[in-house]
């Protein structure tokens, strides 16, 4: 199993400048093809952990291997290659308001230097799979929250990443929209993508019977089967 691990953290600490510790002595592994929930109250360090994984923030100390590559010591020039293998659904979407839905989703492909024909084919297929093919020419702010979230999912998945990180992907969605988005993420997992979803929504943990890593005040409080954890608490 260890050789199959996609993400490995060993005694990782993270402290933002002028703040208390955000992560303390975090050790965990996520295997290839696994679907993991990262949960815990607000401020527990979920977002920070995800940021460390795609090198948006440096770890203060500890070892952090992603695809077997030591992200704790990664060179700036190697960061783009790492990020191209990771799809991220950001909590605040991070869509560009002055770009169309199509252009937003095309971004990760253009950055890879794909030609316009390939970009167009892949983006259109992706938009169809998230049910937004008719909104391709719209601007994000003219869409509902659920639709914007699906644009964010589409952009994270369009590059066919080996690892999908989702930060509160259902954070401000009503139950129906939540189902839609989680179906998309489950779909990616079914196609073999390794998935880490940060959420504080317990109903998600109950509905999706998956491994749950719980953080509390920056430490791993528990790590195991969702059902046991929920019923045991």
């Amino acid at each position: 199993m260890a050789s199959e691990a996609l993400v490995q953290l060993f005694h990782v600490y993270k402290q933002y400048a002028g703040e208390g510790p955000a992560l303390t002595d975090v050790t965990l592994q996520v295997g290839k093809g696994e679907f993991v929930f990262l949960t815990g109250p607000s401020g527990a360090g979920k977002s920070t952990l995800l940021k460390l994984i795609f090198a948006a923030e440096p770890a203060t100390s500890g070892q952090l291997l992603v695809f077997g590559r030591n992200v704790a010591k990664i060179k700036a020039s190697q960061v783009p290659a790492l990020r191209r293998a990771i799809g991220v659904i950001f909590q605040d979407f991070k869509l560009l308001p002055h770009r169309t839905v199509f252009e937003n989703v095309a971004f990760p492909l253009e950055v890879r230097g794909l030609g316009p024909r390939d970009v167009s084919r892949k983006v259109n297929a992706m938009l169809r799979s998230v049910g937004l093919e008719l909104k391709a020419a719209r601007f994000p702010l003219s869409l509902s929250g659920g639709e914007q979230q699906r644009v964010a999912v589409a952009r994270a998945l369009v590059g066919d990443p080996a690892l999908l990180l989702a930060d509160e992907p259902t954070g401000n969605l009503d139950p129906d929209r939540t189902l839609e988005v989680m179906d998309l993420i489950e779909g990616a997992a079914a196609r073999g993508t390794t998935v880490v979803v940060a959420t504080h929504d317990r109903s998600l943990l109950e509905r999706h019977q998956r491994r749950v890593i719980a953080l509390e005040a920056g430490r791993v409080a528990s790590d195991g089967d969702a059902f046991r954890r929920i019923s045991g608490s």
């Binding site: 795609f54 948006a56 700036a76 020039s77 960061v79 783009p80 290659a81 790492l82 990020r83 191209r84 991220v88 950001f90 991070k94 560009l96 971004f107 990760p108 950055v111 890879r112 230097g113 952009r155 590059g159």
Partner: peptide, 16 residues
């Protein structure tokens, strides 16, 4: 800057 930030987050090189 937002555009640059997002480009870099989805894997753009500095040169790009």
């Amino acid at each position: 800057r937002d555009e640059i930030e997002i480009m870099k987050l989805v894997g753009a090189t500095d040169a790009y």
